[in-house]
Amino acid sequence: MVKPNAAQQAFTQNLPLCQALGMEVTDVDEGTATLIMPYSPELIGDPTTGVIHGGAVSALMDSASGLAVYMHPENKGHTATIDLRIDYMRPAAPNKSITAHAEVYHATRSVAFLRATAWTDDRNRPIAQATGAFVFTKKKKTS
């Protein structure tokens, strides 16, 4: 894991929804990215417990996945989500930031396959996991 440079940090600042949700890039590497999203009462989905709406967690994992695709060394061009499946494993504890890590585990000429995990305190106790397929354009080999 390496600290993101200014251009990589700007990823969340340039995407209006990421900015509205207060996301920040914390780590990037080849084909991986980690984003953090602060707790906010505006994002509550369950008023009785104060737990953040699943949609906000999906948005965080989708954004981390998008950046992970951009961070893939063979990526050239833009990306978009083709499909995303999210498993909600436990509610996110209220008043805590949520971190999401995404990685490209396989890439073909036109599709990147992603895995993402989201947690609050303990990475080994994820609140949600996602798998997805993303638009990918592989660089032509120059040999």
Binding site: L17, S58, A59, M61, D62
Partner: peptide, 10 residues
Amino acid sequence: HGGGTASFLE
């Protein structure tokens, strides 16, 4: 944003 669309559908 795909995340916003996901939130809407959910």
